[in-house]
């Protein structure tokens, strides 16, 4: 029996790990970006209308999805909305992520948790609980003194098309040989 969830000093581990494709779509009408995770053998390529949007396929790459589970109390944080992680390299003065990285200093690497819809029209992004668990998970395993990983939601990006970073996805695999 684990500790009570409310008082537990969580120790997170990855669970429900899925390997598949991160498919990115764009709406030429509003400039929005949407993405979804597919476990189909081949990444689906579709064009379709959804309300005022007309989504077209922009690209895909192999990626992974996971949830986090506490090994002490069995609490599970579902990261259904997490489409990927992007290591921020943004230096735009108006970008909150860039400013966070600047204020954190040299030992901190800032990663942006990318949600399914970069336009955030619905007001939703990765949950605060999800961001908190991601931060604890990645930092609990670090062994380098003074090193810190800071995960922030993509709602803090200046603009998903301008904000600079390296998305962790399996791009460039055809170049390795």
């Amino acid at each position: 029996m684990g500790e009570g969830m409310g008082t537990c000093n969580h120790k997170w581990e990855m669970t429900d790990i899925l390997y598949g494709y991160l498919v990115v779509e764009g709406c030429p009408r509003c400039g929005g970006r949407a993405s979804f995770f597919s476990t189909e053998p081949v990444a689906p390529i579709d064009e379709y209308k959804e309300g005022d949007h007309f989504w077209i396929y922009l690209g895909s790459s192999q990626a992974t999805k996971f949830n986090l589970k506490c090994t002490k109390c069995d609490d599970v944080v579902h990261l259904d909305d997490l489409m990927g992680l992007m290591m921020s390299t943004c230096e735009e003065p108006q970008c909150e992520v860039a400013n966070i990285a600047k204020s954190e200093g040299k030992g901190t690497s800032v990663y942006v948790a990318l949600c399914a819809n970069s336009t955030h029209f619905s007001g939703k992004c990765i949950s605060a609980k999800g961001i908190d668990a991601l931060n604890k998970y990645f930092n609990q395993n670090i062994k380098t003194p003074g090193k810190k990983i800071l995960v922030v939601p993509c709602s803090k990006c200046c603009d998903i098309d301008i904000c600079k970073g390296i998305v962790i996805a399996d791009v460039g695999l055809t170049d390795i040989y």
Binding site: L85, M86, M87, S109, Y111, F138, N141, I142, K143, T144, K147, I149, I166, V167, I168, A169, D170, V171, G172
Partner: peptide, 10 residues
């Protein structure tokens, strides 16, 4: 992307 992933894991 390899460095971004490796750094995350330390």
């Amino acid at each position: 992307t390899l460095i971004a992933a490796a750094n995350l894991i330390d």
